[in-house]
Nucleic acid binder design. Structure first.
Lengths: 110, 110
DNA sequence: TGCAGATATGTCTAATCTGACATATTATAG
DNA sequence: CTATAATATGTCAGATTAGACATATCTGCA
């Protein structure tokens, strides 16, 4: 992995010291992170397709813009429960979610 | 929905008074529950395929048998984060998870 | 029936997540 | 550049979830 991916993970709240540390993640932890990132990206795409701002989405969710930003960043304080519920609230269905997961992972082992 | 489904949801910890109450769930909440049930079933099938008991799985997870039982029951005190992490720990990958989601939901609107 | 292994349920405390809010950064128009 | 809308980051208190443990129920089988 290089800088771009690294930055994404760090922005997502994963405390990563360096690439070496990253490699300490077990395979299943990596897959879990990939899954979260996939859902987060799906949420962002869905919102953009709907032509909504994070603030508008937040209002619809009864949440705040900052939480929506964190959802889309797959921040560590955001659970997959929240991501899934949010996707469904924006009109996605299980098949859509499955499609997001099958999309090639955006983060690969270094 | 009928008794069997109803019982499943109740066992899963969803406080359901009656079918009418169930219908008060919004569509997105129903989809979220379906998703959780799909992951929970996937976990049970995976464990059975591996020929492991809940206790063995618990040991591997560093958790307890009771937690594993609750995972497989999609109990309300179990998050999708825990279900996903557990699936990956048992060797599933994102594609497998996506397949579980695409499996026809086992719970349908009444 | 009665025992043993497996699975299910209830409750507790610590850890994690949630929305709110303040504030910072970034992007776009004029 | 410089407003202004949009998005991102940090922190906190209240809500939810995690694992532990006790205990109950279920499932064969002698």
């Amino acid at each position: 992995m290089r800088a771009d991916k690294r930055r994404r993970l760090e922005r997502a709240g994963w405390t990563i010291g360096n690439a070496g540390d990253f490699l300490h993640l077990t395979d299943d932890e990596r897959q879990f992170i990939d899954t979260k990132l996939a859902l987060a990206e799906g949420l962002r795409h869905l919102r953009e397709q709907l032509g909504m701002t994070q603030t508008q989405v937040a209002k619809r969710f009864g949440s705040s813009q900052s939480r929506v930003a964190k959802m889309e960043a797959a921040h560590r304080t955001v659970s997959t429960d929240l991501l899934l519920r949010s996707l469904f609230r924006l009109g996605a269905n299980q098949r859509d979610v499955a499609r997001f997961l099958n999309q090639k992972s955006r983060v690969h082992a270094a």
